[in-house]
Nucleic acid binder design. Structure first.
Length: 463
RNA sequence: GGCGGCGUGGCCGAGUGGUUUAGGCAGGGGCCUGCAAAGCCCCGUACGGCGGUUCGAUUCCGCCCGCCGCCUCCA
C-alpha cells in the first residue's frame, strides 16, 4: 500500500481510500492566461507518475484537474490585447493540453472549468453568508477565518502567528487581514455573473472546493498541487469546506518546485523557460526522467547540464530497448499481471517497496539502471533467457512510471537504408575504408551507427 | 518575525547508528571491436561547522553557519 507524505499531518501515512479499489484525486490545475513553463510541466509529470503508479497497483483512478478560466490575470491580458477573456483562456488552455500530450502525461479523467460552476459557487457563498461565516463589503464577499475551526492546519500555524505575518492593504474593509474573497464585485467592463450581491465573479479559492466536492464527493482521497499552493489556496479551500460542513480531502500531497539558480521558477520573477521551448529541444522522456530522479517534494534545478545528464541516462535505457528489441510496454500491465508478463518478481517487489515509500522514484530509477547492467551482463555472457527477463522487467517498470523505452526510435529513410546495405556489403568484403566512409556519411546525417551481429544498425539520440 | 524544509564525493541524487558506505552523468584505466558505437570490468571512501548521547554517528539530540519555500498572485 502506498504511503504518502500528508501536508496536513506532516507525516508519511498510508493513503487510506474512502472506497477501497477506487482513488479519487483532485489536482489544482492552472490559470490559463499565458504559456506554461517547465514548472507546470513538472507538476503535471509528478501527478501523472502518481496516477500511473496507482493504476499499476491495480486501482481505478478518477483524476480531476481544474482549468481556471476566469481570473484577474486573464481579464488583464484580454484588456491589454483588446480581446475577449474567453478567447485568451481558450488559447492558452489549448497550448496547455498540447504540452500535456507532448509530455506523455495522461489527461485527467475530468477537467472542469471554473466558469461552468459559477452558479454552484454562488449557492455556496450564499450559504456561507447565511451561516454568518461570510460577510459582504463594498467590493465583495469575504470569509471570516475566525469562524473556521482549525484555520492554519495546512500552514501549521495558528491564527495569531498567521496574522502577525499578514500584509494589510490600505483601505481594506476586511475584518481580519486573513479573511479572503469569495466573490468579487465587478468593475466596469469586466465579465460578470449574477449574484445576490450584484454582478461579479467568484474568488479563486472557491472554485476548487465546489468542483472537487461536486465531482468527487465528500471525503475524497487526495488533494494535490505545488507546495506554493499550501497557503493560502489550499488552506482557504479547506476553510470553506469546514464552514460548509463537508468532509474534505483525506490526504494532501504537494510537490517541490523547479528552481533556477536555487530560486523558484516563476512568472513573476521572469526566470522561466516555457514548456514549449523545452519540448522543442528535448526528448520529453528526458524531462520525465529528470523529474523522476529527484524526489517529488524536493526542488529540482532544470539546466542545460541536468537535462543533458538525463538525456544520457535515457540513451542508456533506449540502448537496452534496441539491444533486446523491446516492444513498447507503456502501462501494458498491472503489478499483479507483471510476473505473468515476464517481470522478475523479486525486482518487482523491490520496485513497489520503493514506490510505496512516499514515491521514492530516485531509488526506483536507480533500481532500473541496476537492472540494465544486469541484463547487459547476462546477455554478454550468453544467458539470453535471463537477460531477456531482466530487460523486459526494465521496460515494464519504466512503463509504470510513464517512461516508454525505445519510443524515440526514428524511421529510417530509404536513402539511409541503402547506405546501410552498401556498408554491410563493404564490411562483408573487409573493405574498411569504404565502410568507414559510409559511416561518416550516415553520422553526418545525424545517425549513430552501431555494428551488431545482424549488421549495421542506425539510431538517433536525443529529441 | 512566524512556520516548513534543505545542506552527501566533479555534477545530479537516494539512503543508513557499525560488516562491501545506492544509482546516473562526467573523468581515468582495461576488455570487446577491423576501427568505432553499444556493452562489460576496475578506479573516486563523500556526508556544512561545533558540541553532546553512544563502545561507535553522515545517520539521534542541541547550538551555530549557509540556503530555499510559504506568510501577496503562483505548479
Amino acid at each position: 500500500m502506498l504511503r504518502l507524505y500528508d501536508t496536513a499531518s506532516g507525516t508519511v501515512t498510508p493513503l487510506q481510500l474512502r472506497d477501497p479499489g477506487d482513488v479519487s484525486m483532485y489536482v489544482c490545475g492552472l490559470t490559463v492566461y499565458d504559456v506554461p513553463h517547465i514548472g507546470h510541466g513538472r507538476a503535471a509529470l509528478v501527478f501523472d507518475v502518481l496516477r500511473r503508479y496507482l493504476e499499476f497497483s491495480g486501482l481505478r483512478v478518477r483524476h480531476v484537474s481544474n482549468v481556471t478560466d476566469i481570473d484577474d490575470k486573464i481579464i488583464n491580458r484580454a484588456a491589454t490585447e483588446g480581446r475577449a477573456p474567453e478567447e485568451v483562456a481558450e488559447q492558452y488552455e489549448e497550448v496547455w493540453w498540447q504540452a500535456v500530450d507532448a509530455l506523455g502525461v495522461l489527461r485527467p479523467t475530468d477537467a472542469p472549468h471554473a466558469t461552468a460552476f459559477v452558479e454552484k459557487m454562488v449557492a455556496l457563498i450564499e450559504e456561507l453568508v447565511r451561516s454568518g461565516a461570510a460577510y459582504e463589503t463594498s467590493d465583495g464577499v469575504y470569509l471570516s477565518v475566525e469562524k473556521v475551526d482549525g484555520y492554519g492546519l495546512l500552514a501549521h500555524q495558528g491564527l495569531d502567528s498567521l496574522r502577525a505575518g499578514a500584509r494589510v492593504e490600505v483601505g481594506e474593509e476586511k475584518r481580519s487581514p486573513l479573511d479572503f474573497v469569495l466573490w468579487k464585485k465587478a468593475k466596469p467592463g469586466e465579465p460578470t455573473w449574477g449574484s445576490p450581491w450584484g454582478p461579479g465573479r467568484p474568488g479563486w479559492h472557491t472554485e476548487c472546493v465546489v468542483m472537487s466536492l461536486e465531482l468527487l464527493g465528500d471525503g475524497f482521497d487526495l488533494h494535490g498541487g505545488g507546495i506554493d499552493l499550501v497557503f493560502p489556496h489550499h488552506e482557504n479551500e479547506r476553510a470553506q469546506a469546514v464552514v460548509w460542513g463537508r468532509p474534505f480531502a483525506r490526504h494532501w500531497a504537494h510537490h517541490g518546485l523547479v528552481t533556477v539558480g536555487d530560486e523558484k521558477m516563476a512568472k513573476s520573477l521572469g526566470n522561466y523557460t516555457t514548456l514549449t521551448d523545452l519540448l522543442a529541444n528535448t526528448d520529453p522522456r528526458a524531462y520525465r526522467l529528470l523529474v523522476l530522479r529527484a524526489h517529488y517534494r524536493s526542488p529540482i534545478e532544470v539546466t542545460a547540464a541536468t537535462l543533458a545528464d538525463a538525456e544520457e541516462g535515457l540513451a542508456r535505457l533506449d540502448a537496452l530497448a534496441r539491444r533486446f528489441e523491446l516492444a513498447p510496454t507503456l502501462a501494458a500491465v498491472t503489478a499483479a499481471e507483471a510476473p505473468g508478463a515476464g517481470v522478475d518478481p523479486v525486482v518487482l517487489a523491490a520496485f513497489t517497496a520503493r514506490m510505496d515509500d512516499d514515491l521514492d522514484t530516485p531509488a526506483a530509477v536507480a533500481g532500473l539502471f541496476d537492472l540494465v547492467r544486469r541484463a547487459n551482463t547476462a546477455a554478454d555472457a550468453g544467458r539470453e533467457d535471463v537477460a531477456r527477463a531482466l530487460a523486459t522487467t526494465v521496460a515494464v517498470l519504466a512503463g509504470a512510471l510513464g517512461l516508454e523505452l525505445g519510443s524515440g526510435r526514428a524511421e529510417i529513410d530509404e536513402a539511409s537504408a541503402a547506405l546501410v546495405r552498401q556498408r554491410d556489403h563493404a564490411r562483408a568484403g573487409r573493405d574498411w575504408a569504404r565502410a568507414d566512409e559510409i559511416r561518416e556519411r550516415l553520422e553526418a546525417e545525424g545517425w549513430t551507427v552501431e555494428d551488431t551481429s545482424e549488421g549495421t544498425r542506425l539510431h538517433r539520440r536525443g529529441g
